[in-house]
C-alpha cells in the first residue's frame, strides 16, 4: 500500500476517534535526551500534545499483554474494551514473535494472552533519536518498525508519514480517510533520510561500545555458558530483578493462589527463589549461575527453540540496573571466551 500523510493538527482528532472504541495509550516523551518517557492514557488531560517521535517508552510493551499482576480468568471479561497503543518502537515490536512463541504457539496456548494480543491495535513509530544504551542494530534489527504493526507513523518536519501494515490497519485508514492524504515525494524522502540517520547513529553507538553481532554471541554462547565469566559480571548485582521486569521479552511468571482467584505474577530469574524446589534445593544457588541463566536463555535457548534471539537491543536492563551491569559488556565477554 502507498504511504499516507497525517498533519500534526489532525493527530489529536484521530486519537479522539480511536478512543471512541478503544482504550488508547500514547507514548509521551521523557526528558530532553528522550529517556524516561512512558505511555499515558489518551486524552492526556493536561493539554500536552501527542508526539510519535523520540525513543522507546521506559516500560516495555509486554506490560499491556502480560500485566505484572494479572488474574487468571475463567473466560473473557465481557466489559473489556479493545486497546490501542500508540508510539510503539521497533525494539518493542521485536518482542512480539518471542512472546508469541511462548504463549500462542504449540500444544498449549494462553487464551487470555491471545485475546489481548488480537484486540490490541499497534500504532508503531520510528525512533527519531537514540539512547546511549541502544544497540538494536548489533542484533540485526533496526530503529524503525518493519513488521508487526497495524500502522507505522514516522515523525518528520510538518507531519507524519503513515504506513499501513495489516488488514486492521487498512480498515483504520479507511475510517480515518478524512485526515489522511497520499504522502508526497518530499515526505517520503524525509522518512528515508531520518531512517538512515538514526540507524547510523545507533550503529555508531554500537561500534563505540564494542557490541559483538548477535550471531557471533549465539555462536559463542555454548562455550561461554560453561566459562568463568559470570561471577565477575554478577559481582555488583543486588538481586532487584529490574533487568527482568523492564525487559520486553522476559516472560517468566508465577501462579499464586489468593483466597478466591489465581494470580499470574511476573517472576525474575535473578532472584534466589526462582529455581528453588520444595525442600529447599536450588539448581542455581549463586548469582553468577542466575546471571548466566539469563543470558543463556536469551542468546542460546531461544535461538535453538524458536529461532530468535530473545533480546531486542532496547538497553532497558542496562539503564535500570542498580549494580550498573551493562549488557553490552557481558556480550563482549561472551564473544571473547
Amino acid at each position: 500500500m502507498d504511504l499516507l500523510f497525517l498533519a500534526p493538527g489532525d493527530l489529536p482528532r484521530w486519537l479522539d476517534d480511536l478512543a471512541r472504541e478503544n482504550d488508547v495509550f500514547v507514548l509521551r516523551g521523557g526528558d530532553p535526551a528522550g529517556a524516561g518517557g512512558g505511555y499515558a492514557r489518551w486524552p492526556f488531560g493536561d493539554g500536552r500534545v501527542p508526539a510519535a517521535g523520540g525513543v522507546r517508552a521506559a516500560e516495555a510493551l509486554r506490560l499491556f499483554l502480560l500485566p505484572a499482576r494479572g488474574r487468571v480468568a475463567r473466560g473473557a471479561d465481557p466489559k473489556a474494551r479493545p486497546r490501542a497503543v500508540v508510539g510503539v518502537k521497533a525494539c518493542d515490536l521485536a518482542s512480539l514473535p518471542i512472546l508469541d512463541s511462548v504463549f500462542r504457539t504449540g500444544r498449549s496456548i494462553d487464551p487470555e494472552y491471545v485475546r489481548v494480543r488480537e484486540t490490541t491495535t499497534l500504532i508503531a513509530a520510528d525512533c527519531t533519536t537514540s539512547l546511549d544504551v541502544c544497540f538494536c542494530t548489533a542484533l540485526g534489527r533496526s530503529p524503525f518498525p518493519e513488521k508487526g504493526f497495524d500502522w507505522c507513523m514516522t515523525e518528520i518536519a510538518g507531519g507524519y508519514v503513515v504506513e499501513v501494515g495489516s488488514e486492521r490497519g487498512a480498515r483504520l485508514a479507511e475510517r480515518a480517510g478524512a485526515y489522511l492524504l497520499p504522502a508526497d515525494p518530499r515526505a517520503i524522502r524525509a522518512r528515508s533520510e531520518l531512517r538512515e540517520r538514526v540507524t547510523e547513529e545507533v550503529r555508531r553507538r554500537t561500534a563505540d561500545a564494542g557490541v559483538p553481532p548477535g550471531e557471533e554471541v549465539v555462536e559463542r554462547m555454548d562455550r561461554a555458558r560453561r566459562a568463568e565469566i559470570w561471577a565477575r559480571h554478577a559481582e555488583t548485582c543486588v538481586e532487584c530483578g529490574n533487568c527482568n521486569f523492564s525487559c520486553p521479552t522476559c516472560h517468566c511468571f508465577l501462579l499464586a493462589d489468593g483466597e478466591k482467584e489465581r494470580l499470574r505474577l511476573w517472576d525474575s530469574c535473578l532472584l534466589a527463589s526462582f529455581a528453588r524446589v520444595a525442600g529447599g534445593g536450588n539448581p542455581r544457588p549463586h548469582l553468577a549461575d542466575r546471571l548466566r541463566n539469563r543470558f543463556e536463555k536469551k542468546f542460546w535457548f531461544f535461538p535453538g527453540r524458536s529461532g530468535e534471539i530473545a533480546c531486542t537491543g532496547c538497553g532497558r536492563c542496562t539503564e535500570g540496573c542498580l549494580g550498573k551491569i551493562d549488557i553490552r559488556a557481558v556480550l563482549r565477554s561472551v564473544a571473547h571466551v
Binding site: G106, S108, F253, L255, D267, F274, V277, F301
Partner: peptide, 24 residues
C-alpha cells in the same frame, strides 16, 4: 528430573534445564 514447575505447559520459564523445559 526435579525442577521448580509452576505452569506445567512451558510458559512460566522456571524449569528450564539446558535446551529443555522439564515440564514439557
Amino acid at each position: 528430573m526435579e525442577r521448580n514447575m509452576s505452569c506445567g505447559v512451558g510458559h512460566c520459564g522456571h524449569c528450564r534445564l539446558g535446551k529443555y523445559y522439564v515440564c514439557v
